[in-house]
Amino acid sequence: MQPTQPPMAELPIHTVLSEAEARARAAAHEARLRPVLDPYLAARRRGEKQPVMDFLFEYYTFRPSRLLRWRPGLGVAVQGTDARRWLEDPDFVETPEGVTVDPARFPAHRIPSLRWVVTLLERTAARRPHLGCCGMHEWAMVYRTERPRHAHVPLRMDPDTLAAFVESHPITCTHFDAFRFFTEAARPLNRFQPTRDTIHELEQPGCLHANMDLYRWAYKFYPWVGSDLIADAFLLACRIRTLDMQASPYDLRAYGLEPIPIETPEGRRRYRALQEQFYREAQPIRRRLLQTLRSLLELAVTNAPTHADGVA
């Protein structure tokens, strides 16, 4: 266990939890996640593919064990013997109020990445949402290819019919990490040509993937970002990912998911309504995450004022 150290003078402790309060929060955190994680982990142990959930642990890289491990986040001190065990983690410090994560321990070499994410969240939040994409990104990923990403899952239509639909409907994907999985034939059909260098200019808050990515930007800065906020972002990402795949060209009825047929006017109306709902649910999560990361950035820069620019 590391020796007890005094906190930074600027350390912003705004909440102090007793040991009993912290245990209750940790139990509630696990209770929220177990109904989602346990079936997925059981399927994974059986070697079964899960097209919806696999994405949340393959594209996103936060392990289920870490997702379940509750930590309070920046500005929260926890009293008691349970919290003192966290001092084995060098990111934590003991203060007169209790044990808390210390922004002074945030690695200086990660400050450029933190600043990059703060800028991304700020610019995304400032834009109006675009709600007219209809989930065409998933269709563009299987357009005129014999090697779809989920090869073990059947498509809802034959390749020629699928291609004709893609060619008849505008593609307006603004998300770089979705666009980079488009087939070569599909890329010229997109209104935008996102690159890593244009992420800050194109990201917008109606995008399903931008809102799922709130989970990534939250866990990327764990434990300074607390587990409650990470869980909020994760559970929203689970629901968004479900819509993402229901509106895709894949037939997921074997997994209990009825298609949302965006090739029909009714399917497009339903998709847009759900996309708008998720946009509205993501907004407070984005604001809370941005507030936390701005505070972390300010404190980290104060502690390590000299650093180079960079990206996430």
Rank of each mutant, 00 (worst) to 15 (best):
V117S: 04
L235W: 03
P6S: 13
P194W: 04
R32F: 04
T61W: 14
I285C: 01
L296F: 02
F165N: 03
H14N: 13
F179W: 15
R115G: 07
T15P: 04
S295M: 13
F92L: 05
V78N: 00
L11H: 15
M245Q: 08
P249E: 01
C207G: 05
L11N: 09
E281R: 10
L252A: 05
A185G: 06
R287Q: 15
A186S: 09
I260N: 03
L131D: 01
G73L: 02
V78C: 04
G135I: 01
Y219Q: 05
R253W: 07
E138G: 01
A282D: 02
Y59E: 12
D309M: 11
A42D: 15
W139Y: 12
F179E: 02
R280A: 10
I111T: 03
Y279P: 00
E298A: 14
E201M: 11
V36Q: 06
S227G: 09
G98E: 02
L131T: 06
R269W: 09
R144H: 05
E258A: 15
P107I: 07
A42T: 14
Q204Y: 10
T183Q: 07
P188A: 08
L74T: 02
H130C: 11
P159Q: 06
Q79I: 06
F165Y: 14
E21D: 14
T302D: 12
D197W: 12
S227P: 07
Y219W: 14
L155G: 01
P305F: 03
P129I: 06
S65F: 06
R127A: 05
A300S: 11
S168Y: 08
H209E: 05
R156I: 04
A218H: 04
Y40N: 10
R66H: 14
